[in-house]
Design a protein around this nucleic acid. Structure first.
Lengths: 137, 137
DNA sequence: CCGAATCCCATGAGATACTG
DNA sequence: CAGTATCTCATGGGATTCGG
């Protein structure tokens, strides 16, 4: 979902969503990624407690180690999550939301509330156009 | 971003984000799509005025006809946008946000506000880990 | 226990060309 | 003008496997 112009046009970037003009696009590119929002949610629920890698994986049913790793790495790079390695063997790694991450969670909570409240209507609309669209009557 | 199990396993669905349990995931799958949020934004700015296809395209620099078409189609299917065809030649098609669409815009506005306020910090964090990560000092 | 590396498929999305 | 169809490439993300 990151910039790319297409075939061989090697000059003008032309990307709108991932350019500084539109912070929203760039943000959505990140939280729109499959597991990010769920990870933030789980970490927020535990906050201010830290959560270990394996525990996170258990609380995010279906996620693979790779994707959890990648997701956490991205969140850490973005300053939304802190990573603390406990020097033991085997090593334990703990994650926690930063202040910034918590503030994002607040915004996500709004989105979640909308989803909870309105997704049924969206589903309804989909079913309606499934019927009246193809066949009509 | 929609369900898929992997190689040839043809049985268990296993997808977590696009299942009814997590409306948020399903919503993010939609608004996280490259042009959706911008389209909603532009339509919201014009609301309650309608906006024509070409006008929309002009207000969304960089979008192709195809992607605009697809995006609007999805929004319409989801009940977020209405589509009105003016029976003339050449035909003119007008789009407008529904009430549902407007309510979504409200949620998106919160996300936008967060992005405006905090993306710089995110960028800063990225630059920091670009330097201290690789090299350290 | 944590996660990096590799492989591989399904999908998103741009370019282009064609219809009513 | 609005929209569809086709082709193509870059990316997301799952399975699996190796390393510390």
């Amino acid at each position: 979902m990151t910039s790319q112009v297409g075939r061989g046009s090697s000059d003008s970037p032309g990307d709108v969503l991932s350019n500084p003009q539109c912070p929203t696009g760039r943000l959505l590119d990140r939280i729109g990624t499959k597991w990010t929002s769920l990870a933030v949610r789980v970490l927020a629920e535990a906050s201010p407690q830290e959560v270990r890698f394996g525990e996170l994986q258990r609380r995010m049913p279906g996620i693979s180690q790779k994707m959890l790793s990648v997701t956490l790495h991205n969140l850490t790079r973005d300053g939304l999550v802190t990573r603390r390695v406990e020097p033991s063997v085997p090593p334990r790694v703990h994650y926690r939301l930063t202040e910034l991450g918590l503030s994002l969670e607040a915004a996500l909570a709004v989105v979640r509330a909308w989803a909870q409240e309105h997704m049924p209507e969206v589903d309804r609309a989909n079913e309606l156009s499934s019927r009246s669209g193809p066949t009509d009557s």
